[in-house]
Design a protein around this nucleic acid. Structure first.
Lengths: 169, 169
DNA sequence: ATACTACTTGACAGATGTGTCTTGTTAGCG
DNA sequence: CGCTAACAAGACACATCTGTCAAGTAGTAT
């Protein structure tokens, strides 16, 4: 299957959930889960790995939660991908051959070498802010998973749609 | 990890092993395994799935083996990929999100939509023959895994290099 | 008919990705 | 201090991919 892991997709969604109007506030894993449909227990693990890689901060206890360590327009999808999948997420060989880098390489080598560059550039160019704005524009109210100070705020009602957990089959 | 499965890579190597000078001859799984370093038991399963999908024929018993059902220049890498991974090997969403096809789609959608087309076209354009020729040019003597009629032929000596089983990590 | 050869098939095992559940740890409040 | 909120972390479960092992089945030679 030629795509990034579902976990990476989850991470992108979760982080976009923490962008404005949440900026500077501590957002609960529970609310992110409700907004996005990502299973909460699994989300906690993903968020923890993002803490370890420095993209977000965590605060335990009462009024704790997670928040971005830098503005969403300074976080790229590439940053998130590398945090979740590690540095080797874009292998040298499209066909998964271990020694493809030895010359002469396999016939897809030149093609994949160029495409790799394009994919990496695109992911670096795309910011978390852009994702968050797209998500809001599609009506997922993904910015509404924080906002405890708003009157009448009830996290339980912010769940707009539930994403299916299954990968496209 | 953004690449096709290792099994697909194995299938491409194994099939390129069966191209000239093997054309029209029955090639043993054992010899393909020796040429490519693919574990024989696992290779047998891959070859069987290629039989089921019609890319090769199998013949049991003495002087049995496998052979291509059509010339290597009429088999594309795309054919092999679809045979091994199924039709849904190139998902709609780069991030693995299940409902990404709903509008508005995620910010990587337009980019990935174009790249998908390029990747598919490239795999359709690249023939098994091209792979086999590349393999021969790199000195793996991948055509030498058949040839029982050559004088002094000893399959055990045709193993030139052993590929590492591990994926690039 | 028998023996040999080679593909076929099922059971099993380890690694990884995904997901759940439970317990532990930390921070704030009264 | 004791209670509660919220993240941390480990055990466990399940699916898939990769790989091994062993027994079964079919084709050929003699």
């Amino acid at each position: 299957m030629l795509c990034l892991s579902q976990t990476t997709g989850y991470a992108v969604l979760a982080l976009s959930c923490m962008d404005s109007p949440c900026n500077g506030r501590w957002v609960l894993a529970k609310d992110i889960s409700a907004c996005t449909g990502i299973p909460q227990a699994y989300l906690s693990k993903i968020l923890h790995s993002l803490v370890v890689s420095g993209l977000i901060q965590a605060k335990r206890g009462y009024r704790g939660g997670f928040k971005l360590t830098r503005p969403a327009d300074q976080i790229s999808i590439l940053d998130i991908t590398e945090a979740v999948e590690g540095e080797a997420w874009l292998p040298k060989c499209l066909l998964g051959l271990a020694d493809c880098s030895q010359l002469p390489a396999c016939p897809t080598h030149d093609f994949w070498s160029k495409e790799r560059g394009k994919i990496e550039t695109e992911l670096r160019r795309t910011t978390l802010r852009a994702v968050a704005e797209f998500e809001r524009s599609r009506g997922t109210q993904i910015g509404a998973c924080c906002g405890a100070e708003e009157p009448g705020y009830t996290p339980e009602q912010t769940r707009v749609k539930r994403r299916t957990a299954a990968r496209p089959s």
